[in-house]
Amino acid sequence: MATIKELSRKPELLTGGHRLCAGCGASIAVRQVLLGANDQVIAGSATGCLEVSTTPYPFSAWKIPFIHNAFENSAATISGVEAAYNALKRRGKIEKKMKFVAFGGDGGTYDIGLQSLSGAMERGHDMVYVCYDNGAYMNTGIQRSGSTPFGAATTTSPAGKVRPGKPQQRKDLTQIIAAHNIPYVAQASISHWKDLVKKAEKAFSVEGPAFLNVMAPCPRGWRTPNEITIEISKISVQTGFWPLYEVEDGEWKLNFKPKELKPITDFLKPQGRFRHLFKPGNEHLLETAQAEIDKNWSWLKKRCGVE
């Protein structure tokens, strides 16, 4: 992998001047992912913050070819682009090597776009799918998603008098995609840029489908100060909320192994969306959150052969 000095000399494929919020994890995720590409890249995005903020007509922040189609079909759309590329290549109309990447938030990936993603992965397109996961539908104003953590207050899982935020646990999308037995699946975080760029490089280099699930906090939805985006991402990894691991040709590998996980409250406490969990009488909710982390961590360690 390139050194940070070399990476800093690579051209920015998503330029500045777009309209994403200060402290947004999405654009950081996209830039780090694109640093991992060594061939010409064609990108697509699902409807969402990333798409609306980077393409307000007549402007575009994309220095590479880019397509937005709709909300739930970023994977299917890029699969079509890739298929047309291969068809044109087969007929000798194109020679240059190109790689294809589809971006989507957790709304467009865990929920409404899951079928489209599953289909594209199963069909074996040579494409990378990247989920920038901020744990809710942030573009429409912070509504719960299948990735919203237990207990989080969103506008559709508010912390009310009788309901303390989202009652359900998150679904594990990375494992769902790993179950497609594609060449490369990984979970990464923008706080661990070296790990992320390396994973992106692997994802782009395999022949066939690859999937990256990237922790990308949203200060608006998480109720965190803009300047702690990277710090809170790091804590998500250190607490085991967002383990860094990869599944390469069926081999599971844990990429970050702390001796001991930090307590989940370190992750929850700085975020306004979990404030109600710290009220007296809600201790059992914090215990439930911790128990879930412990269970998943122990399962993942076992799966990765780490004791």
Binding site: N69, N73, S79, G80, V81, A84, A87, Q115, S116, E122
Partner: peptide, 17 residues
């Protein structure tokens, strides 16, 4: 494809390509 929705989505991607 796995659905008509993806059929048209892929067609859109393919022709735009």
């Amino acid at each position: 494809v796995e659905s008509e929705h993806s059929a048209m989505s892929a067609c859109i991607g393919g022709v735009a390509a």
